[in-house]
Design a protein around this nucleic acid. Sequence first.
DNA 1: CCACCGTCCTGGCTGC
DNA 2: TGCAGCCAGGACGGTG
Length: 283
Amino acid sequence: MPELPEVETVVRRLRPEMVGRAFAQVRVTWPRTVATGADQLCRTLPGWRVAALERRGKFLLFALARATAGRAVPGDGGEPAGALLIHLRMTGRLNVEPPGAPAGRFTRVAFDLDDGRALHFDDVRKFGRVFLVPQAEAVTGMLGPEPLAEDFTLAAFRRLLVGRARQLKPLLLDQTFLAGLGNIYADEVLYRARLHPLRRTDTLTPEETRRLHRAIRDTLRKAIEHHGTSFDWAYAGGNYQELLNVYDRAGQPCPRCGTPVVRTVVGQRGTYYCPECQARASR
DNA sequence: CCACCGTCCTGGCTGC
DNA sequence: TGCAGCCAGGACGGTG
């Protein structure tokens, strides 16, 4: 499922195709996909140009500007459109289709572009969401910091943990704590940091906190580096697994010590870890 | 403040 | 071979 590295990969792939393009007609085949209202999206988006495409957490963020007057500020003067945001959730995919391409079986929203092509939002499970808002912050305002941002330092991470007493796994999945980690990378981060998923933040030693901070950044950076290829494999059902140390590897040997990887459920989520490397108590 | 549960969805898997 | 039933999982809202 798309987490920060996958979304980053999609953004990098789409950016050269989308920036500068203007939206024409929008077609919605599953209205609930559009969290801010399908009718409003279809009415409002045509005529807006993509000024920039960024990632915030697991959101794709299309910053909009008026297609005609280059000076218009999105969201200014009560303008109804300013930012288009898309969250892929479990199975969402975005592709730029050539002119005349028909909507696929799972296409939920089709955005026609001014060059005749179309951006298709396909989503088998219909969990993905599209937002059109005057200000992106209306959607992203609740998110915690970007784990790969320069200012997400060890000191900043320590400050984030002050006064909290939470299990590590649910904490890493909490987007208001930190933006971008999902179930796969949360497990991979904890494996790399050699910390048990149920360890509580208030029991971490300074050294363990340092390891966790480093593991978050290293795991995500490495995943982004490798995602030119692995992302496609994941969706093609290929051996995406080869990049993963513990996720979905129950019973297989830990790459570090050979102990069989264990699967449990933490906070309703399948959770994989090495019972030897990630012992419950600190050591 | 924190944990836990139900909801949304459907392809793919399991088991008979 | 066919099919019923279950599962995964991100985010959110409600409850304890």
